[in-house]
Simulated scan of single mutants.
Amino acid sequence: MKERNYRVILFMRIQSIYLALFFLIFSIIFFVNFIDLKEKFTSSFIYDTSEKIHVNFFLSLMATEIGQLKSTVNEEEAPSISRSVFLTFTNIWPEDIRTFLGREIPGFSSFNTEIAVAGFGTDLTTLPIESAPPLEMLLKEKELAEQDQSQPNNTQEKGIMPGPKTGKDVAFIYHSHSWEAFLPVLPGKKTANEAVSLDESKNIIAVGRKLKDELMKRGIGTSHSTTNVTEELKKKDWNYNHSYALSRETVKEVMAQESSISYLIDIHRDSQPKKLTTAVINGKTYARLFFIVGKENKNYDRNLKLAKELNEELEERYPGISRGVFIKTKDDGNGVYNQDLSSQSMLLEFGGVENNKTELDHSIKAFAEIFSEYYWKAEEVSGEG
């Protein structure tokens, strides 16, 4: 009789444990899915978190099942489970002062930028910088006689034979900050904040136009937006912070009209000085490039892969041309950059405020060369080319 009662009690206890585990798992799932967590359990979040936890923590867990691993674990270095849980859920890392002060000190959050691939000379002290957008100055400039409305020369240069044609537009070039310009073509302007213009021959639109021409020469159908973002923001009574919302409207409209477009290229320029944005490669001077990948969108992993692959090809052929691949979250930028609209999106910066046309042209041709090879290779693999 006693043995029977013991079995009943044991069975009830086991059932209670199962029930408790069920409610625990259900609560965790509910918490993760319905509470507005600052950090979501994305693959990138899990990767970044596990990367910061000491390797001995994982070895300790595995050693509980694989006895042979116990000899490889340094107990003195292995962190406690409580510390690992604390680091994961608070995102405060004692070794990194940015996690304590990033939101308290104005401007300090910019150092949250992650460097996925560091180019030559790239570290936290040489991060890309955006110049202030003096919209009123730009609107007044519209009235100046220097505004050049001439059309670009689309004739092909000798030595570059047109490649096979896509037969459709597959790439779209646009500019969320179309006013960004270059000091060498702005007489009387000296500082980074003055390097702005509505003149399409002097601002970043000229870079986009040249890149379009180079891609078209290589058979890649390309569209290019020359939208004057400054004027459009003014019409909507929007400010600088709405730049990506405005360019988003443009991108969505073009993609709706041209369903074949899959590569989105948002072109900018940096505000860092020439010593950081220029490289001499085989006797030629280039405006250095860098990629920015937004982390706060569903296409983050694939867009990061694209940026890394293009960056690697560029560096292999033109060592030093790239400053690297940067990852930005909503804490230090837009965090999305319209890259949720395509898994083949990139934000690409060509040079800085002090780079001249020759340096920019060299880099545009280099990028067009690498990108076109990447594109046609991908087409061969997919069997669509």
Rank of each mutant, 00 (worst) to 15 (best):
N5K: 07
N5L: 14
R7M: 06
I9W: 08
A20I: 11
L21V: 10
I25L: 14
I28Q: 06
F30G: 13
F31D: 07
F41P: 15
S44G: 03
D48F: 09
T72I: 15
V73I: 10
N74S: 11
N74Q: 11
E75P: 05
E75T: 13
S80L: 13
I81K: 07
I81M: 07
S82G: 04
R83L: 10
F86P: 03
F89H: 07
P94D: 12
G102Y: 07
N112C: 08
T113E: 11
A116V: 04
G121P: 00
D123M: 10
L124M: 09
L127R: 04
P128A: 01
P128K: 01
L139I: 06
S150R: 11
I160C: 12
P164K: 06
G167L: 01
D169K: 10
D169G: 10
V170Q: 08
S176G: 08
P184Q: 06
N193I: 12
S197T: 11
D199K: 06
D199T: 07
A206W: 10
L211I: 05
D213I: 04
G219L: 08
G219P: 12
H224T: 08
S225M: 08
S225H: 04
T227L: 11
V229G: 13
T230C: 11
K235C: 03
K236Q: 15
N239H: 06
Y240R: 05
S243R: 03
T250W: 03
A256P: 03
E258T: 14
I267T: 10
R269M: 06
D270F: 02
K275W: 00
I292C: 05
V293I: 15
N297E: 15
N297V: 11
K298H: 13
D301G: 10
K308Y: 07
K308G: 08
L314W: 00
E316F: 08
P319F: 01
R323D: 00
G324K: 01
F326V: 01
K330V: 10
D332T: 14
V336I: 14
N338I: 02
S342R: 02
S345H: 05
G351R: 02
S363C: 05
K365W: 02
S372A: 15
E373L: 06
E373D: 15
Y374Q: 03
Y375K: 00
Y375Q: 02
W376V: 04
